[in-house]
Nucleic acid binder design. Structure first.
Lengths: 116, 116
DNA sequence: CGTAATACATCAGTGTCTGATGTATCAGCG
DNA sequence: CGCTGATACATCAGACACTGATGTATTACG
């Protein structure tokens, strides 16, 4: 019954938040659950990573936030992508894809020539 | 003429080093060049990341090292995978692949149901 | 003799994650 | 009516890895 969920790799979380919010505004707790769900419960989101990330993204102008009632009737802070946030999402997804491609090349490379 | 190379994502470097050394023993400088080459020069390896990583991996028992002459005749510290290093390589590649899969799922997911 | 490549190494600064801790509300159950 | 678990926020010390700067030294080339 060990927890086999994956740990976040540092620096990769923000783009997941941006992606989630591209579906529509949401509050922190919901963002966390959506990421868990859409990753089939493999990505572990600690609250200590979540709230600072939201703050960070808002400070960078990628998100706006406001207090509203959630569907349970409780107050919650809802976040929404700004236009800059949409651009950042596209750019960061592109960087991630390049990174994975380059990484995969190294992991699947065969040695050529001699070893130094 | 800007440098468009990708920055390392924290925590992803070690597996590249292990992979490179699975081709045979090498010294630090060579490891760095091989990763650059096999990634088509997209992955930027700073020396300040390289040498601490090698030390770290050796401390974890994943590498052995010894001083030998390189093919230029200069002395260099050559690193080689230990059996534990080979196991770690397999495991870390598997974790990386799971991570990419989960991540890709989130990035390509479509919203289902309502937003909280 | 100067420059570039080879080869090592250290370190302050930075930024992000983990895990613990804390507050508070609400629903459901017994 | 009191308990528990889910919802919802937030903070913070500690750990850790990367960037970019700096430093040493040798070899090759022109």
């Amino acid at each position: 019954m060990s927890d086999t969920r994956l740990r976040l790799i540092k620096g990769t979380f923000d783009v997941l938040v941006l992606k989630t919010l591209s579906w529509g505004p949401a509050h922190g707790y919901a963002i966390s659950r959506w990421i868990a769900q859409s990753s089939r419960d493999e990505l572990k989101i600690e609250e200590g990573a979540l709230y600072p990330a939201l703050r960070r993204l808002e400070e960078r102008g990628l998100l706006d936030s406001e207090w509203r009632a959630s569907d349970t009737g409780r107050d919650a802070r809802f976040y929404a992508l700004t236009p800059a946030g949409r651009r950042a999402l596209r750019e960061e997804v592109a960087v991630w894809e390049r990174y994975v491609k380059s990484f995969t090349r190294v992991l699947s490379a065969r040695p050529e020539g001699s070893i130094a």
